[in-house]
C-alpha cells in the first residue's frame, strides 16, 4: 500500500511545492533580482541610429600638430603657486592658449592620495570618482580658466568641447605602468612613467602638473572637466585590438565623425579618443580600433 501511494504522494507534493516556488517570485527581493535591467539596454538596439559597419580602414596618425608646445613655468617666488601656460592648436588649426595657477601642495596631496589608495574589493568606478574628488580644487581652477578663455573667444556648442579635449589630447601619449619602464625612458610626455601604484593611473592633479597620461588618465581629466561644464559626459571602457582601453564618452552632441556609440540607460554616448591629438580623434570616431568589444560606461 505504501509503495502504491508513494508516486501519488511525491507528485502531489511536487505540485504544491512548484506552486509555492512560483508564488515566491512575487516577493519584491526575488522579483527585483530576477529582472535584469542591464538586459533591457539591448532592447533599445532597435532604435540605434549610430551603428555603422566598421571597415578595416585604419586612420593613421596626423602629424600636423607637431609644433604644439607645452610650457610649464615654475615660479620661484614664495606664493607657492605653480603657473601654467598651455599652448596648443585645435582641430581647425587655431592657436589656443591657457594660463592658470595652482597651489604647489596640491600635487603632493594628490600623489599621496593616489599612492596610498586602497580599494578592496576593487571598484574601478569608485577609484576614478575618488581621484576626481581629491583633485576638485585644481580641476575647478582649470575649469574656470577654460570657461574664461572660451567665453573670450565666443566659442559655442561643440567648439567648446573641442577646445577642452584638444588641450588634453595635445601632450603626447605617455605609458603609465605599475611595473618598471624600459631603460632610458623618462617620465615625461611621449615617455613612460613606471611604478605608478597601485592602479597605473594618475589623478587629474598629477596630470595637470606633469602632462603625462595614458588612456584612462587623459579620459578621466577630460570627463571631469566636461562634467564641470555641464556636459553629459562619461568615462567609457572596453576592449580593442590594443587591449583594454578607456575613452571619453559624450552624449547630446552630434558626432563629428560618426562610427559607433554605446548606450547607457537609453542615452547614447559617442566615443572620443583622448590619447593623442589627431584630426581623426574627434567626437564619435572609434575607427582607429579594429576591434570594439564590451564597451560600457564606467562613470557618468
Amino acid at each position: 500500500m505504501k509503495n502504491k501511494a508513494a508516486l501519488f504522494r511525491i507528485l502531489n507534493l511536487a505540485f504544491w511545492i512548484t506552486l509555492f516556488v512560483l508564488i515566491l517570485f512575487v516577493i519584491p527581493f526575488i522579483n527585483n533580482e530576477t529582472f535584469r535591467h542591464s538586459e533591457i539596454a539591448q532592447w533599445y538596439d532597435k532604435f540605434d541610429t549610430t551603428l555603422i559597419e566598421v571597415d578595416s580602414t585604419f586612420i593613421s596618425d596626423d602629424d600636423q600638430n607637431k609644433f604644439d608646445t607645452l610650457n610649464r613655468k615654475e615660479d620661484s617666488s614664495k606664493t607657492q603657486l605653480e603657473h601654467f601656460h598651455w599652448i596648443w592648436r585645435d582641430y581647425n588649426g587655431r592657436r589656443c592658449e591657457l594660463k592658470f595657477s595652482i597651489p604647489e601642495d596640491e600635487f603632493d596631496k594628490a600623489e599621496r592620495f593616489r599612492s596610498n589608495y586602497n580599494s578592496f574589493p576593487f571598484n574601478q568606478s569608485a577609484l576614478y570618482q575618488d581621484f576626481i574628488d581629491i583633485s576638485r580644487g585644481p580641476l575647478q581652477i582649470l575649469s574656470e580658466a577654460f570657461t574664461k578663455e572660451m567665453d573670450r573667444r565666443h566659442l559655442q556648442g561643440i567648439d567648446r568641447l573641442n577646445f577642452v579635449v584638444s588641450a588634453i589630447q595635445t601632450p603626447p601619449y605617455t605609458y603609465v605602468k605599475n611595473s618598471g619602464c624600459d631603460a632610458g625612458q623618462r617620465c615625461a610626455p611621449d615617455g613612460c612613467c613606471g611604478h605608478v601604484l597601485p592602479y597605473a593611473v594618475y589623478t587629474p592633479t598629477e596630470y595637470i602638473f606633469q602632462q603625462t597620461g595614458d588612456c584612462d588618465t587623459k579620459s578621466l581629466i577630460c570627463y571631469a572637466l566636461l562634467k564641470s561644464h555641464g556636459v553629459n559626459a562619461a568615462l567609457i571602457c572596453g576592449d580593442t585590438d590594443g587591449g583594454l582601453h578607456a575613452m571619453l564618452g559624450v552624449a547630446d552632441y552630434r558626432p563629428v565623425i560618426p562610427s559607433r556609440a554605446i548606450r547607457n540607460n537609453g542615452v547614447i554616448f559617442h566615443p572620443w579618443e583622448t590619447t593623442n591629438f589627431d584630426h581623426s580623434f574627434q567626437l564619435g570616431n572609434m575607427r582607429m580600433w579594429r576591434i570594439w568589444r564590451g564597451w560600457h560606461v564606467t562613470n557618468n
Binding site: 535591467h37 533591457i40 532592447w43 533599445y44 532604435f47 552624449a251 547630446d252 548606450r263 540607460n265 537609453g266 542615452v267 547614447i268
Partner: peptide, 12 residues
C-alpha cells in the same frame, strides 16, 4: 518602471 524609462528615453 521600465516603461517609464522608455517613455522618457532621450534617444526615443
Amino acid at each position: 518602471n521600465t516603461f517609464f524609462e522608455i517613455k522618457n528615453s532621450t534617444e526615443i
